[in-house]
Amino acid sequence: MSNPEVMDTPRIELTSLDELWFQVAGTICNLTCRHCFISCSPNNHSFEFLSFEQVETALLESVEQGVREYYFTGGEPFLNRNLVPMLKRTLDFGPATVLTNGTVLKPEWLSELRAAEEQSGFSLEFRVSVDGPAAEINDPIRGDGTFERAIKGVALLCEHDFLPIITMTQTWDDSRNAEILQQFRDVLRQLGCHRPRLKILPRLKIGAEENRMEGYAETERITHQMMEGFDRNQLLCHHSRVITNRGVYVCPILLEASDGKMGDTLAESLHPFPLNYGACYTCYQFGAICTNTTLRPRESD
């Protein structure tokens, strides 16, 4: 993704590093979803796994910054065989959230993590990507058989007394949202998940999704005028950074942006970022969709 070099682009400062992300599986995934914004696949090695030491070093550095919570993403985080020890170590510092496709979970990992969560006092959340309440909606996007595999993962999480958050990328018309949500609640109840947590997310029109459907129009950019009076907390880059094996990046969406890398250490990566990209426009419209947004309500004053 090249920098469009828009003249006079608004820049956003990072005033408070609240969330630290770990691109823990790089761009490596067991699935090849047709809408993936960073085109993850079994063979995409643009970004590689993080090591336990890399995560621990960043955790220690994050304390100085007063980081509030930690997110683990990829690719599929559970492909990284060190994920369980990494999460256990993270829970010594604060709450953690894993963004997973739910297809490779093992009961022994979840038992270990559940015990670690109980001991730490902080929450361990799982955001499971399932793009609809039925295979007919999900599988054309995420691959044959993935709905059934993901749902088994969701059931396994519920069996271990986790309360997974199901995130669905919306590939249907807005008018169907209520019906889709109800259908998914019914599916979850049948699995024994009685406290459904469901979120519908917008598509990010970059990476594989740009080829599947369409990219952003040139007009879909944030302007200075749009920033006037806008609550900047709605933009992830205002309060987050991402640790990758290639350095610290601005957000988990813009890994392929030419200016996405902010520095080699957290301390080097706190400078402002130009909001040049179409994906920035989606973040502007919908809020920081990658995070547990209910923990970050809109500013009241």
Partner: peptide, 23 residues
């Protein structure tokens, strides 16, 4: 201290973050 409607839950608020607010 920084936002009237910010939820500080026990399980999702790190001690490092609270230290920063106090600082």
């Amino acid at each position: 201290p920084r936002r009237t409607n910010e939820f500080l839950w026990q399980s999702t608020t790190s001690t490092a973050f609270l230290n920063r607010l106090a600082d």
